[in-house]
Design a protein around this nucleic acid. Structure first.
Lengths: 152, 152
DNA sequence: TCAAAGACGTAACTGTATAACGATCGCATT
DNA sequence: AATGCGATCGTTATACAGTTACGTCTTTGA
């Protein structure tokens, strides 16, 4: 995320939290900034290392901030990578799906109604009530496919 | 999994491995049995504890067996739980989806064409080539919903 | 029979996440 | 201003998950 987008994202987070009457504290803002600044998913201990420069910190500091940011929908956790990314549209709660490239590590966040719908239908059939759908597709992004093709 | 189903599952695993010309060794069989015997997903260290009774073992012992069983499609890994379950239909390779109950911990394995299809379509749109789709829906199973209703 | 590949034992280590407890901060009410 | 309370934060320790590296033994096929 470039500097401009980052500033915008943080400003948006500020105003969202103000609306909601929740506190985006310095720690939380710091962690959010670090997550957003990275182009790719970042691990909790990567964040921790960066938080440590210029201040003390231990794992719970980072995990608490991450848990809160997750609850606010400002970041997402990628279960398959044990890593976190900034949410691209935190305005409304949503069920996201992720396309994760094993080649370059890039991640695309989708909000696909057809996927959400098919999950919902399948769940209904068995009387299951979904609360948190986790959809992460590992594979190869188009850029990496192209590179491979050119290499041959 | 009850004793009868378990025996059947192990027998089926035996014959599958024979067909494929791969070796279901004592260790692997042991781990498969422990995973299948459990009604619910089991963590690697839970397995390790059980393998330790009556023999020595260290983490690599269990992880090697699990990796091999995963590759053979005899067990699945649930990324959101860091835990493993026996596959309900190991005969053919397949993309499964899981419904995971946060109440009782039970897991239903689906093989839903509509879900797989919608994932495939969404990926194609962006030129993404899926290799391993991970679909795990956390929520509440019908039994647990019923219990909650009755409690009120 | 004997080398190569596969499977296993072992020790040490990295990485991910949580428990528990006390101190502190922000803020509304007295 | 002082009090009280919930939310936040600091700190230590530890649980849980997974890997590296290396040596030994077993299986198997030339």
């Amino acid at each position: 995320m470039d500097e401009q987008t980052l500033t915008a994202a943080l400003a948006r987070a500020e105003s969202l939290c103000a609306e909601r009457g929740v506190r985006l504290t310095a720690q939380r803002r710091r962690v959010l900034e670090l997550v957003c600044r990275a182009e790719r998913p970042v691990g909790a201990y990567e964040i921790l290392d960066q938080v440590r420069d210029g201040g003390k910190a231990a794992p719970p500091t980072v995990y608490r901030a991450l848990d809160w940011l997750l609850a606010q929908g400002l970041v997402h956790k990628l279960e398959t990578l044990h890593a976190y990314i900034g949410c691209t549209h935190p305005e409304h709660p949503h069920a996201s799906q992720f396309l994760i490239c094993s080649g370059c590590g890039c991640v695309a966040e989708l909000e696909d109604a057809a996927i959400a719908g098919s999950l919902q239908s399948a769940a209904e059939e068995t009387g299951f009530q979904p609360s948190r759908p986790v959809v992460e597709v590992l594979g190869t992004c188009s850029d990496c496919s192209d590179k491979r093709r050119n290499d041959r």
